[in-house]
Structure formats: C-alpha cells, structure tokens
Design a protein around this nucleic acid. Structure first.
Lengths: 378, 378
DNA sequence: AATAAATTCTTGACGAAGTTAATTAATCCT
DNA sequence: AGGATTAATTAACTTCGTCAAGAATTTATT
C-alpha cells in the first residue's frame, strides 16, 4: 500500500485498491497509521477527475520531508554521499577523496562524510538533519550480502568478508543497509525511475565495467552464488578478444571504456591516444574511430538481446558513465537489439541515457528508504 | 506446507517447519485437513533418526494414489498422453497420431485419448480412473497464457488465440490447465526432479528447437510480452549463420538438430547424409563430423554461460531429444561453460541428460498436479 | 527404577491483515 | 429536491499465522 503511494504519486484509496488488488477497506485501514505517523497526507479532492458523478476522491500523497535518508557510494577513489527525502530526491551532497582502501580508514572517512552531510538544518528548515535521518544506505561494487551486511568480495577495494554494515552502524549511529551498487541503482529505478509500475525490468550500466541488475516479479534477482546480472561477461563474439574474466568475446571485453580505448589506440595507431580525443575525433567524423564505438554498441546490443530473450523484461534502462558519449553508441545498440531480439520480446521499452555520478549515491539512499518499509512488498 | 511434503518426501512436521520458516504449530494445523482428505498420512516413527534423546518424529508422507492426473503433450504429429499419480509418476500412457492441425480435430482426438487413458481401473485397483482423475494438464509449444487457458500463438500448429482450455474442458469434463511445453517440463523438474529444493534453476531443452524455462525465487519467469527463456535465440557467434528468427549466430542456428544436419552435409560433402549416419560416423571417429557436434556443444555452452551469468541459478538441467546423442556434445558443453561462466556462477550444478519423449507429457501432468494446490506456494 | 534432558507434536489464546456488507459522504445530473 | 454514482468508513467476521504452555515419547544419568 505505502509503496504504491510512494512510487505512483498521489493516488486515491480506491485507486490504490485497484492497483494492488486489495479491498478499499483494507487500504483505508493500512493508510491510517502512515497518516498518523506523518508519512502520508490526504490531499483535498480536486473537482471532477472521475467519470462524472460520484464523490470525488481524496488522493493520498507522500510527505517527502517527513524523514531524510543518507546514501553513500564507495568507489575505488572516493566517497560520494547524498541526503535525500522519502522520494529519494537529492537535497544535499558531498564527497571525500580516499587515500587508502583499508576498511578502517574507509569507515572513518564515511562516518566523517555522514557527519558533514547531517550537520545542517533540514531542507524544510523545521529541524536539524541529525534528528530526522536514521537510515544510511551504502553501495559498493562486488559481491555484497545485503541481509547480513557483509561485503563478501570487492575486487576494487581488495576486500573479503568485511562486516561493513556493523562497523558503519557503530561509527555513525544510523541503521545501515548495504547493497551492491548496480542493484542499489536498480532499486532507485524500480521505485522512483523508469521501473515504476513494471513488474520486471533490467538496469544495465556501461562504464569501466559493464553490469546489470534484474527485477523479476518485483524482486531483485540475486543469484544462487551471489552472481547475477553479469551482462558484461555474456559471450557475444565467438573467438573475440580475451576478457580478464578468463573468457573470450565477453561484452565487457569489447565495450568497456578500457576496451574501447585499447581498440581505438590500435585503430588509430597512436598508443597515447586519450579517450577524450578519441571521442572528439569520432564525433568529428573519423570513420575508423566511429567504427570502434559502433562495434561497442553492437556488442552491447547483442548482450541486451541475450538478456531480453532470456527473461523478457517489460523495460530496460541502459545507463552508466560510458553512456555519456552515447551519441556514438545509441544507434548501433538499437539496431543490433532490434535484429537480435526474439519476436515480441523486442517490444520491451529500451531507454538509453547518461548517468550523473551522483545517481549512484542516490541508489544507495533508495535502498535506505526501502529498508524503512521492509514488510510492504506490494 | 503440502508442497514441501509432496516434493521432499516423508518429512516430520518440525522438519517442514524448519524448511518453510513456519512455526511447528502452523504445520500441525495446516497438515490436518490434508490428512483428513487423504492426501497425506502419518508414518510410524522410525527408531532413533534424531540426535539422540527426544521424542521421535512422525514423518508426514504423501499418499500418491489418492488422486490421478492426466497429462497430454501436443506435437505437430501426435498426442502423447499419460496418467500419473500425485507424484507425477507415470502409471499409464498412450498416444494418437494426428492427421490435421485443425483445432477441432485436435480437441476431438485429445478427448478420445483421455477417454482411452481413463477407461480402466485405477493402478491401485480400488476404483476406476474416471472417478479419481479430475485434472488435465496440456502442454503445447509456443506462446501460451496459462491463466486464461489460451494458446496465443503456436507456429507448429499454425494457431492463434485458440481458447484450448475451454474447449477441452467441455470435451472431457475435466479441469484443464494449459502450459507452454518447456515451462511444463520445468515444473515437473522443479517439483519432482533436479529442481527440488532449489529456489532458482533453469531447464534447457535441445532438439528441433532450443528453449529453456527459468525458475527464479520459486516462480516461473513468464516474460512481460510472453517471451522468456529463448536461449535458442541468444546470439553467441557474431557474424555466425543466419537464424530463421532473423538474427545471426543464435544458438539454435548452430546447435538445433536441423542446423547440425545441414552443417554435417556440407562438411561431408554429401547432401543426402542422414542424421543417424552422421551420428554413427562421428562416434566412429570421423573428425570433421565430430567437429560439427563439438561446435554445437560449444554454442550451447556459450548460451548456458550467458544464462548463468545473467541469472545465477542454483542448478541447470540440459535435456531434450538432441541430448540422446550427448556423448558427442557433453564434453564440449562443459568445457565451454567452464571457461565462460563468471566467477562462482560456474559452481551451479550442470546436469546433462537425455529426455524420454514421455517426459513431455509428464510435464503436462505435473502442471495438472500443481493446479490442484494453487495457493500453496511454499 | 527414578529422574532429568531432549525433542516432537498439540492445544488454546491471541494478533495481524485481510474480507464482505452495510453505511455514510460528497458530488453530478435531471 | 431527488436519484444515480462513486469514495471512504465501519463493523463483524475469516484466515493464517504466532507464542506459550503442556503433553508425549524417547535417551541419558544417577
């Protein structure tokens, strides 16, 4: 019930009932405690929105400033933190550079960052953030066990089995939820972005690495052994370039930032070519370089086709830092996808768009928001 | 509760409680009506199975002969029907050749087949089948909407939007559940085969076509547009042979029975070569022909890697008529899979084994069994 | 043999969360 | 004003679970 109002904007009780399959009586009952706690409010009925006659609806709406949330993304180089409201809209942000990958150091730096973020008054000016923010979401790349709050393995940080949620809980005094970075981003998308209303969708990130998170029947796919969504390691080019995973012809071995740059240097015959230059020249019409990007787009399109043919999501979002140059990619991704997607699977909505870096931290905050209402899965 | 006993054999109430997360009190209560209705029985406690002291457990066991089920698979050429018990163990079987793909004709033939199957006494001799079989499961390849009982599109039969469940219900007097053939097989596997106890697994069938069904979080993945599990159309060989789906380098374009035969004829330079001969000669050591099969195995291994890297299932079963010759495939499938599966995803259990044709009908019967206990999803 | 400890199963009181059916509320239309 | 229509609430009830206590049945120990 609550998530329906949270994600689908102001909705009348009857509407919530229709969308969730509950009875309207159940919605009335379920909504009351949320209204009393200040999370929801009843809007005045707007004249004549219904089909003519009848009592007008009183839409339920979220009160986004009821509570604030902190989200932090840990990368290899720095920490990016945001404060958001209940809708995961960013209200403040900050970041810290990291000087070491030592867990203790990062816990300290992160606690400092949180302290900084929560130092001021609330955005609505009625209180201060310390007293209105209890949940912290943290996003890390790698194998993360959200339930136990343990980073099982993070190649970027060189961590194994770090009980990060516990450590951060002690250091910050907040309730900490840990999640894999791409999965966190998918949660943000599922609740507050393109995934709203879709029972299944996929989020694909393209950048240094290429990964994805899948939502099926409303739930994230986690993988029996902690591995899932590794679209970057789907083999699409038999006999293609070797991948650091040990395979050959993986999407990542062709379309990651690094793979593109390596290839561009080869093609141009300039071992010192920078990515920025390659992009500029490709945009300027350098055909061999354009072909390098097109090839990457083609590989991504093949990976998307594999994903869509296997699980038939309603929508797919392709995002990530790599997509900043997506004018060089998009066409080819769409063309290849259209050819290789099977039958009506091709009808899935394909959104390709860049990803502001802050979004990663927003994903972490979305996980924090989600953690507050665990039970409400509808 | 019931499904736990059904699929995991005799189990004590406390054990069921442990596996499902319910309290033992809840299990006691839930079991009673099933015992009273004759679906479950309480076995005598076996001495000292537990850890020493304590009251010995009274295992709950299914009474498989409480009720019988009919399963029918419709192929392009014939109908294969089986009668099974509650465990989906086949107790009788029969088949009919089809002379037309006309829906009316098939409904008639299927009703006849069901009549034949239910003519005799029950296998346990206590009654006759007509009075102890109420549910019919029907498996068809193509796009099938189980909920509404409609065959949306079946290329093999040339059908579009046939309300088959309704027609068969009228013709047979049984409660009919319709399901896609591969999904039905996956249900059988999930409840009574390799999938028991796994929360996620995949079934891949290799034969005329190559398909799969995925179970994630205990539920079949259906795909937003009715398409899912199309591993046959995962592109694995960039620039590979064209597929009739319009794509290139699909698994099916390399590893389907037809694709193998076409390639074998090319390689051998004998346009009239039969599959049987190709198999015999490959087994006899004909290297060029062996390479054709190995190439197919390689393509399947790549497809499996794509599936496993994306979903991370606990187990994968590869089966189908094509696997009858799996001595020529298996090694290569495993080798390629081992190379391309990412990280610990490779730890998923990979079972490769042939598929007796009757299994398809058994899958349909498993769906019928499942339809009897819809609510019990644990 | 008596008692203690362990373990399974049952019972009954209770609570959470849903349902249906009836009632009240607010609006449009004639 | 009165009827039709839709929204929301209320009250009684159902379903499905929990918890806590206790009965049942075994092994282990004194």
């Amino acid at each position: 019930m609550f998530t329906t109002v949270l994600t689908e904007g102001p909705v009348s009780r009857v509407d919530v009932a229709r969308r969730t399959g509950l009875s309207s009586a159940a919605v009335t009952k379920a909504a009351r405690p949320f209204i009393e706690a200040g999370y929801l409010e009843e809007l005045a009925s707007e004249g004549r929105t219904g089909p003519g006659a009848g009592r007008p609806a009183n839409p339920l709406a979220i009160r986004p400033d009821r509570e604030y949330f902190v989200g932090v993304k840990i990368t290899g180089d720095d920490l990016i933190g945001v404060v958001t409201d209940l809708r995961a809209d960013v209200r403040a942000s900050a970041h810290h550079a990291l000087t070491s990958h030592d867990a203790e150091h990062i816990v300290h730096a992160l606690a400092d960052l949180v302290g900084e973020l929560l130092a001021g008054p609330t955005p609505d000016g009625t209180s201060n953030l310390r007293e209105r923010a209890y949940c912290l979401g943290v996003a890390v790349s790698g194998d993360v066990d959200r339930a136990s709050g343990v980073v099982r393995y993070s190649p970027f940080l060189g961590w194994r089995d770090v009980r990060l949620a516990e450590l951060l809980g002690e250091a910050t005094g907040l309730t900490v939820t840990l999640e894999n970075d791409v999965k966190a981003l998918a949660v943000a998308e599922q609740w507050f972005g393109e995934g709203v209303g879709a029972s299944s969708f996929a989020l694909v990130t393209v950048g240094t690495g290429i990964g994805s998170a899948l939502v099926v029947n409303g739930a994230l796919v986690r993988g029996a052994h902690g591995v899932a969504g590794e679209i970057g390691h789907v083999p699409v080019a038999d006999g293609g370039p070797p991948c650091h995973c040990g395979g050959q012809g993986c999407v990542e071995a062709i379309a990651s930032t690094e793979a593109i740059l390596t290839r561009a240097r080869q093609v141009a015959g300039e071992p010192a070519l920078t990515m920025a230059d390659a992009v500029t020249r490709a945009r300027g019409g350098d055909e061999p370089l354009r072909a390098v990007f097109a090839r990457a787009g083609h590989a991504i399109g093949l990976g998307l086709a594999a994903l869509v043919n296997l699980f038939g999501p309603e929508r797919v979002v392709v995002s990530g830092e790599g997509v900043a140059t997506y004018d060089l990619f998009e066409d080819q991704i769409r063309r290849t996808f259209a050819v290789q997607a099977f039958g009506s699977a091709a009808r899935c909505g394909l959104v390709i768009r860049p990803l502001p870096f802050e979004e990663w931290a927003r994903g972490a905050a979305a996980v924090a928001v989600q953690s507050l209402f665990v039970s409400d899965t509808v």
